[in-house]
Design a protein around this nucleic acid. Structure first.
Length: 485
DNA sequence: ATTCTCACCCTGGGATGTGT
DNA sequence: ACACATCCCAGGGTGAGAAT
């Protein structure tokens, strides 16, 4: 985990408490924190500070030196900031408040930098320059050792030597003030950058439009004008970001202004990047919030559509059931009417009537269920009497109070088919009500025969597929016994 | 006893060199 | 071009000893 803190925030952390305790809270070593402080020019308590403080001696807190263009302002380290430490710092970790005026930072930097003069020669070379020179030396040795060597030294011409001396002076100046170290990516020293708090990419070469197509000699190269350009300068047309040999002087005479100018470009670029990053971050967060909102809307819309479709299907089903119920009644009334009429005297009538009533029963939603889903989650408990009589070993729990409304309850004195159907209807509606809140209790009673029918019909309604054997038992037992069930 | 400094060590990642 | 070895460096930890 990476912890980002501004210079001020790290300073706020290391002074109220000993480093040995702070480091434990953050999760890295005290040495690591001290190193970070050192790099960012953050003073830390001197040796003996805490002991003096504990014994009541006078101690002074070293103020945080003001930053300039070459000061690290954002520190990245390992570990994490616990809430108690976060409460001690100003603002959000790693988020700078109002940035200081660049002109003020520039003046401070100018004072600290002093005058940048040209390296007399390359005996005291910056590591990046020394690396190039060493490579050239290796090539020279290989050339001396072998009559044929395809590679040639790159920095022997006075033109290239001049380039190196200018670069060396700039690199040493940046290193001296802690502005960053030089990095040269290629072997010709064309891709150059300074990495660090004042990091910037630069080019140093002949102005492209005036570059000669064919150089006649090294001396001609030496007379070529040089231009030094900061890569990020094109984003900031209001500041100087390139310098060249002109009537005002050669690059060698402008080194101080070049170093300061590069640092200003670096600061401006850094602020531009931070601003872009903040904008990008804000857009990303807005995009994510928008995506979340749309996903929520979609889910809600789909849920509404699902509920509407469910409701429609339920209503359609209800309508179909009602029609079937009406048709079943119509068939039964018709059978009754035929029974009362002379046609009923036909020998085949009873056979026909059984068939017709069976059709009506099949059609009647009060006698049939369409699917198991109708009774999904509904638990039917036989009444106490039924249960005990029919199941000495009660496999189903016994309802203690059949009149508990929240469990669903239907009862009737089943003395007629109509009463049985009423009981069924009531049980049906009770169970539907009870479906989400608990088990339904079906209680049928009446004469032995009627009760048997009632129980058989009602339980058959619910348990048609599941406990058909139970229904048979009920039927068999109750039919042969007297008394209410 | 606590805090701090310093030298040394470890580790991981990137750059560079070398052999196939 | 690729794989592998080696080097370099930054970040960070450890522990002995000094300072208070």
């Amino acid at each position: 985990m990476t912890l980002r803190l501004t210079r001020e925030q790290l300073y706020e952390l290391v002074w109220p408490e000993a480093m040995s305790r702070i480091c434990k809270a953050i999760g890295i070593s005290d040495v690591a924190i001290a190193k970070h402080c050192g790099k960012a020019d953050i003073p830390i308590p001197e040796r003996g500070y805490w002991n003096k403080l504990h014994v009541g001696q006078k101690v002074t807190r070293t103020p945080l030196p003001p930053r300039d263009l070459a000061t690290i302002n954002l520190i990245e380290m390992g570990g994490a900031l616990p809430p108690e430490l976060k409460a001690r710092i100003t603002g959000e970790p790693g988020i700078d408040g109002e940035p200081e005026n660049i002109d003020v930072l520039t003046e401070r930097f100018r004072k600290r930098l002093g005058k940048v003069s040209l390296s007399r020669d390359l005996t005291r070379a910056d590591p990046a320059i020394a690396k190039l020179l060493n490579r050239d030396e290796t090539i020279r040795q290989k050339m001396a050792a072998s009559s044929f060597h395809w590679e040639k030294p790159r920095f022997e011409s006075s033109y290239e030597r001049r380039r190196l001396r200018i670069l060396n002076s700039i690199f040493l100046a940046f290193a001296r003030v802690g502005g960053g170290s030089a990095y040269i990516r290629d072997r010709e020293a064309r891709e150059i950058s300074i990495r660090g708090p004042a990091g910037v990419s630069i080019t140093l070469g002949s102005p492209k439009k005036r570059q000669a197509r064919n150089r006649r000699s090294d001396d001609a190269d030496a007379k070529d004008k040089l231009e030094l350009r900061a890569e990020g300068g094109r984003h900031h047309p209001d500041i100087i970001s390139s310098w060249m040999d002109d009537d005002a002087g050669k690059l060698e005479d402008k080194l101080t202004e070049i170093v300061i100018g590069l640092a200003v470009v670096s600061e401006r670029e850094s602020r531009r990047w931070q601003s872009e990053m903040a904008t990008w971050q804000r857009k990303r967060e807005e995009g994510e919030a928008e995506a979340r909102r749309k996903a929520k809307e979609k889910a809600e819309r789909e849920e509404r559509e699902r509920i509407a479709a469910e409701e429609k299907a339920r209503r359609d089903g209800l309508l179909t059931e009602a029609k079937n119920w009406r048709n079943a009644r119509l068939i039964r009334e018709y059978v009754e009417a035929r029974r009362r009429s002379e046609v009923a005297q036909v020998p085949e009538f009873e056979k026909w009537a059984r068939w017709a009533l069976e059709v009506a029963d099949q059609m009647d939603p009060l006698f049939n269920i369409k699917s198991n889903s109708d009774i999904e989650g509904v638990k039917i408990r036989p009444s106490r009497k039924q249960s005990f009589r029919l199941h000495p070993e009660p496999v189903l729990p016994i309802a203690s109070r059949p009149d508990q409304a929240d469990r669903g309850y239907a009862s009737c004195h089943a003395r007629s088919d109509r009463a049985i159907r009423t009981a069924t209807l009531r049980a049906s509606s009770a169970c539907r009500l009870a479906k989400p809140i608990g088990p339904a209790i079906v209680w049928a009673c009446g004469s032995a025969n009627d009760a048997g029918k009632s129980a058989r019909l009602v339980l058959h309604w619910f348990w048609r597929r599941r406990v058909s054997s139970l229904c048979h038992k009920i039927g068999g037992v109750t039919d042969s016994q007297h008394g209410g069930h």
